[in-house]
Amino acid sequence: MTAIETMIEVKNLTKRYGNVRALDAVSFEVPRGQVLGFLGPNGAGKTTTMKILTCFIAPTSGEVRVAGLDISEDPLGIRRRLGYLQETAPLYVDMRVREYLDFVADVRGIAVDAKDKALARVVEVCGLGDVRDKEIRTLSKGFRQRVGLAQAMIHDPSILILDEPTSGLDPNQIAEIRELVKSLGRERTVILSTHNLTEVQATAGRVIIIHQGKLVADGSPEELESSRGGARYDVVLAAPGGGVAAVKEAFGRVEGVRGVDAAESGRGGEVDVTVHGDAREDLRAQIFKAAVDKGLVLLGLGRKQVDLESIFRRLTTADGAAGKEAH
């Protein structure tokens, strides 16, 4: 088999549940060896996308290829190549860990002589050594999550799809899982769904944000921060003679400024100005000079980097408006 570089290819994916559009013309690609953070508020369509990628449900329309295979033509071939950890990691709680993993290995068709090795490996990687012979119903949430992860990795898949792998875990466990995801992402393709932004920054090389079934952002965390976020300057002026319009004009001319908002502050005799600029530059000196040139009295000036969290909030709170601006 020749190496396929694009592991996941999604084109115009739409899924409707009755009249509800869970996914609306979503397109993206994931190359080999990338950890993709799949971000979105609850109900945005993350889980639906994963269910389609794993061939559990069929899309209403659109084209999806995983590992070069079409989801409608070879679902079994796709499932052989991917590991999937569902949200909340449902497991057969009446089984013992070892027994359960053994069952998964059987269903996955792992040969008898390779089975022991595969089991030993995931038990080691997921830190299940101490609970191997325990019934799953007696395990804590963290251990269940790890058993789920072991289940997803037992056949050494080239694609891993993890739906909120750290939900319900304590900070230590979260750190461990993140380390694991990072190390897995070196050779494999990992899709990591989450609504936790720190997680994405800690692990993912690329981020996709979806909101109300639409893809609203796609890029590395740094790219998103510089293109959609940038820097914000909060400027406070003593009320100028020319009014708000004059202020806007004064700062709008400064090189590197992308937008200016100004409004009476309500504190009396003051004007609040918000200047948007690029993340890579610091425009404070220029803003100061522009104010002096126009005879404006500067009462305050501060710069804030717009981070992923603000971008996420901006993109996923405005109803629909955010979606339109994306493409």
């Binding site: 079994l76 071939g77 499932r79 569902q86 909340t88 449902p90 497991l91 057969y92 269903v107 789920g148």
Partner: peptide, 14 residues
């Protein structure tokens, strides 16, 4: 009910 059906069917199982 428990969601294990999804875990089962997303393995290479018809």
């Amino acid at each position: 009910r428990s969601g294990t059906i999804e875990m089962l069917i997303t393995m290479p199982v018809r």
